[in-house]
Nucleic acid binder design. Structure first.
Lengths: 210, 210
DNA sequence: ACAGTGCAGTAACAATTGTTACAGAAGGTC
DNA sequence: GACCTTCTGTAACAATTGTTACTGCACTGT
């Protein structure tokens, strides 16, 4: 585990901290589609992502969903962070977008390290900053873009986190993430296909040039 | 100034810290409509709000705007925070919604206090948490609500921060904040008036029961 | 009183997005 | 092959939001 830790977080954390993490953290491997955080649940440990991608969703009372952003190697979930530190309930839902490897840090250590390690403090601040920026970018998309551009952005983001030019999604799944209906996604994808930007197959979309 | 500081932040910060703030912070009084932060600008001090309300807006490249949230007494701007700590550019725009009193903390002190005072650290974490939650609530509004409910929420929020049941806004100003057009706002306000929820006057809206 | 300006009301229309319904294709199972 | 389920394509229509254009009102300054 320590090798992976160093690879993903070595440029961020000092050696002592990496070793401490290695001692107390619990290694975890999750498979695609696994639910990591459920809205409303209390959280007592915080994930550091070593490999793969995690999708963070907002869910309203009616169960309607909206994709907030993806987490990748080197990222952590700021919501989890603040839930741990502030002992609040989770406001979001996290699902493994690909199979992923992560380590879970118990909440007591987080507090301790905040005092002890400058690099940890900076990491926490930086994570907050990144998530706030991502949240604001999400706001940008919903507020300023039309559905066709949001779909394009979605395909681009998804392409980026999976490093795969084939996107393994049904239209319905995309519709959930963008909080619209399947018919709308099919319609727009078809338009993208006639424009030569994607190639549509059953259960997958091949990204040509977007 | 120290009296006001204690009133707004005394329950949060220890006495030593309040005194340090009192020594290094610059008191500032702004009048309604004054621009505090411009997007793209670099920021070298961080505001603590003592009185009044500040409106935080997102602005895209075309100059289109969207209200993110209001800051009130006891709040600070998390974006400014992370801009200071991370030396990034501002991503947002801040405008005094009412006349307001605030103190500006130089960036060097922020780093110092993060090591020195536990209460300061918690304040910073807590601010991040609150802003992230607010940002996500904004996402909720845009993603899940229709314009009529967004308008109602806007009126409620505005009523809350100004403590005034008369909202001194033109329809055009509201349209900017919600990123829609004046005609749409006029239309929906008229509907609210026929439902007996507001009373419309020139340059102002009286909130009856919303 | 008069002109000038900004604000609000309204109508008519366009564009976008959401909804419902149905047909056919692809794939799995027996 | 026959059957079933899931996914996609499409049409027709509804609802919401955006746009343009014009009107009259309220206030200002002269």
């Amino acid at each position: 585990m320590i090798v992976e830790l160093e690879k993903s977080y070595g440029h961020f954390f000092e050696k002592d901290l990496i070793e401490e993490i290695n001692q107390v953290a619990v290694f975890k491997e999750v498979s695609e589609g696994e639910e990591l955080i459920r809205p409303g649940s209390y959280i007592k440990s915080m994930p550091l992502i070593l490999q793969g991608a995690i999708k963070i969703l907002r869910q309203d009372d009616d169960g309607d969903e909206l994709l907030l952003y993806f987490l990748e190697r080197g990222d952590t979930c700021a919501m989890t962070l603040s839930c741990c530190l502030g002992h609040h309930k989770s406001e979001i839902k996290a699902i493994a977008e690909t199979e992923a490897k992560l380590v879970m840090i118990p909440v007591e250590k987080m507090e301790e390290w905040t005092t002890k390690y400058k690099s940890w403090r900076n990491f926490v601040f930086d994570s907050y900053h990144k998530r706030l920026i991502e949240a604001i970018e999400t706001i940008d998309s919903i507020a300023f873009l039309k559905m066709d551009d949001r779909l394009l952005k979605y395909l681009r983001d998804k392409h980026k986190v999976t490093s795969d030019h084939i996107i393994h999604n049904t239209h319905q799944q995309i519709a959930y993430d963008l909080h619209t209906s399947r018919v709308v996604i099919s319609r727009l994808l078809k338009k993208l296909e006639t424009e030569g930007k994607v190639k549509l197959n059953r259960n997958s979309i091949e990204v040509i040039h977007i």
